Amino acid sequence: MQTSFISATVLLILITDPLGNIPLFISALKQVKPERRKKVVYRECLIAFLVLLTFMFFGRNFLDVMHLTDQSMQVAGGVILFLIALKMIFPSEGGSVFGSDKMHGEPFIVPIAIPLIAGPSAMATVLLMSTREPSRMLEWIGALTICMLVTTVVFLFSGRLQKLLGEQAITALERLMGLVLTAISIEMLLGGVASYIRQFH
């Protein structure tokens, strides 16, 4: 499956799911003073960006060290995206992926940068993109940059967006994103299987 710059950007935005993460993000910042929140948003988004960029640049080395093939990574990425998509469509009770909504003090790296933004699915996706087509690294960096800018803007205006859209609209958008992500994950999974089978023909 040939991935375009636009589809890669959309995929990363769907995976990081900034709109769906608004309630969790607001909960994480409850103990933070309002005047500090902008700085926290910028810091956490920058950390997440650097983490994903590291996975993007050193993904090939990681696969070589672990003796993993591109096909196995593609299938694994498809499975992870499928599970994430299912959680977006059918969220568990409580809705928090961290096990608890109670945050104490100012969050640093965990849980906002990791795993809220740079979660396992986002790490697997950027690693997969860079290892499959390393010649297009500039495009992947651009797609990741746009994704992080969108996430930053959404988090900066999270309070207003929650009031404007309401809980039901945000939930509906997350379900829709989950549905699209399900189709993408199946396509990725089938592409990995097909590529693996072609090796024996």
Rank of each mutant, 00 (worst) to 15 (best):
M73H: 10
P91A: 03
E35A: 10
P115M: 04
G94M: 06
L116Y: 05
M137H: 11
G142I: 05
Q71N: 14
Q168N: 15
M137L: 14
L161I: 15
G20V: 09
L19Q: 07
R43Q: 12
G166N: 08
T69M: 04
G99E: 12
M73L: 15
I112Y: 02
L29E: 10
M188S: 06
T125H: 01
L52M: 14
N21W: 08
P120C: 03
S130G: 08
I22H: 00
M177H: 02
K163F: 08
Y42V: 09
L24R: 09
E139F: 11
F57H: 09
G95P: 01
L46N: 11
F82Y: 13
K87A: 07
E44A: 03
I197C: 06
G59E: 02
L164C: 05
K163W: 08
L165K: 05
V10W: 03
A8P: 07
I114R: 02
I89R: 06
I112R: 02
T145L: 15
L173K: 02
P91I: 04
G191F: 08
L164R: 10
T69G: 01
A194Y: 11
Q71V: 13
Q31R: 12
R175K: 15
A85N: 01
A76M: 12
G191K: 07
S130T: 15
H104K: 11
L14S: 03
L12S: 06
H67A: 12
I84A: 09
R132V: 02
I22F: 00
V40T: 11
V180L: 15
I84L: 14
P23Q: 10
F155V: 08
E167Y: 07
N61S: 13
L11S: 10
G59H: 01
H67I: 15
G159D: 14
S158E: 07
M137Q: 11
C147G: 07
T182V: 12
D64E: 14
I84E: 07
L165D: 05
F90G: 00
L12W: 03
M137Y: 09
